[in-house]
Structures are given as structure tokens and as C-alpha cells.
Amino acid sequence: MIDTKTARTRLGIVEYAVVGTGAPVVVLHGSPGGVDAAALMAGFLPRDEIAAVLLSRPGYLGTPLDGRTTADDQADLVAALLDELGIARAGVFSWSGGGPSGYRFAVRHPDRVDALVAFAAVSESYRLPDQDLATRLMFTSAPGRWLMRLLASHQPEQYVRGALSAEGDLTREQLDQRVAEVFADPVKRDFVLALGPTAEQDRTRRAGFANDIDRFAEITSLELERIAAPTLVVQGTADADLPPEHSYHAAAAVPGAELLTLDTGTHLALYTHPDAAAAQQRVVDFLLRR
């Protein structure tokens, strides 16, 4: 568990934590998520080189929605939190639903961004795909969430298989191999098992998730062409959660952006792909401008 705090910024309350020392990097979680998901995202960032500024975006855990619904609102809240912490500039690391606020932070506060890394990040209009009743109940009902936790505890390999299958378009053979690789690696296995509870749509995350989905559908342009910060876009080619085209669009739109693709990578590719360690090192080097 991380030690979270509450900051009363000029734009309202935000739950946050700072982990590590060194160059500051803001970590923006996906949808659903929270500061706990941000902590898992930042797990590979070296604590002696990077001070990871983790936060719950509005509507998640200890950060109330309070009308801060748009990507611009959330980008400005990041700036307000950095003001509260006395941080002038920072790197930004976003994943999935944290993409719009990360991109807009770089647009609206260009003088405060050292580098931007966007992993499988929403960059244009997005609508949640239709889900069958069983899937919806699994994530949104108390019995479903209890069953997921039970599966993770007593049948972890099946849980990992289910997560990788849901997050990627893999053949049966590819899925079997990926599950075996992840389950044999304690770091990868524990990441997948720990991530599950942060994606539950319980009362502490429901408002944030519903708002995210509504706002993502309304996106017409994030003005990516205005981003001046060095930008690295990371994407798995077999992502079934967010179409890879979001990353390809961002990499083409952001001036000078670099694109790192992970072949057959799922929505969890940066943490579960066979080349995850090398990709993570690339992210660290990019954030530190090495």
C-alpha cells in the first residue's frame, strides 16, 4: 500500500502520493483506476531517479468529481497539484483513459512538460464497445467483483488467462504462450493480479468511469499538433481494449513524436509483453531525456 495524501489545490481536492526521489513524473491512470492503479503503472520507474507523482483523477477514490469533468479540467488540476507541491516542470506518463488529460496538459501547459509518454492512450473519440451481460455483471456488481477476487486468489493462472484474453486479440497459441510467460515471471504475474481490483467499477470509481466514457465520446480534437514536448507513444499491436489506431493517430499528429510498437502486445503490453523490460527501459530513458 502507498501512503496517499489529500491536497487542497486552487482547483479543488485531489488525492495523491509521491513515490521515489529525483526527476518528477506525473502518472495518469486509465479508466477505471485511481492512485492505486497509478502506483502499479509506476512500479518499474526507478525510485532513486524518478519521483512519481501519482494521483486519482476526478471521480476516482479520494478525488471527487466536483464538476471537473473535461480533459482540460483535469489537465489544469494536474498543474494545480504541481503548484501545491512546488514542482515547476515534470514528465508525464499516461495510460489508456489517462491519455486525454495527459495530452491536454502538454497543450495547455507547455512550459511545464519535460517529456510525454503515452501508452495505449485515448487520443480521439472513443465509445465503449458493447459488453455482454456476464462481463458487465463481473465488473459492476458486488458478487461479480467477489468472484473475480476469488478467482485471482485460488486460480491465478485462469485469472491471468482471462485478463490477457480480454485485453488482446491473440490466437489460441499466442495466448497460451503469453500466459505461460507471464505466469512464470513473478513481476508480470503479480502486476496482472494486482491490477484487477483497480479496474472494478465500484462506488469509489463509478462516477469517474462514467464521466470518462461520456467525455471520450465527445472528443473532436485534442489539438495534438500543438504539443511541443518530446513525445513517445507506446502501443501493442494486438490491443483489444483500445484500438491501436489511437496511438498511430497520436504519433502522426504530435510533431516529432516517436512510436514504439510491441508486436502481438495487448492493452497490458508494457507490463506483460516478452519485450516489456526493454520497452520499460526505453520509457525511463525517454522520461529522463537520456
Rank of each mutant, 00 (worst) to 15 (best):
D285H: 03
D130Q: 15
Y271V: 02
G144M: 05
A42V: 04
T237F: 09
R108W: 05
V35H: 01
T266S: 12
V25S: 03
G99E: 11
L54P: 03
V234S: 03
T264R: 15
A115H: 07
R108E: 12
V14Q: 00
D66N: 11
D285S: 05
L147T: 10
L45I: 05
D130N: 13
K188V: 07
T272S: 11
P100T: 01
R203W: 06
I87R: 07
T198Q: 08
V182S: 03
E124W: 11
Q131M: 14
S101A: 14
A134K: 13
G67T: 12
H29Y: 02
R226P: 04
R104V: 13
A278L: 11
P110G: 07
R206A: 12
E49H: 11
R104S: 13
A79E: 08
A39L: 00
S94V: 14
N211F: 00
G196V: 06
T204F: 01
G102V: 03
A37G: 03
D285Q: 05
R203P: 05
S56N: 01
Q177E: 15
F93H: 12
G236E: 11
V27H: 02
A52M: 02
F119P: 01
L260E: 10
L164K: 12
M148T: 03
Y16I: 01
I227K: 02
A251G: 08
Q174E: 14
G20E: 07
P143Y: 09
D83Y: 06
D190R: 14
F286N: 00
L65H: 04
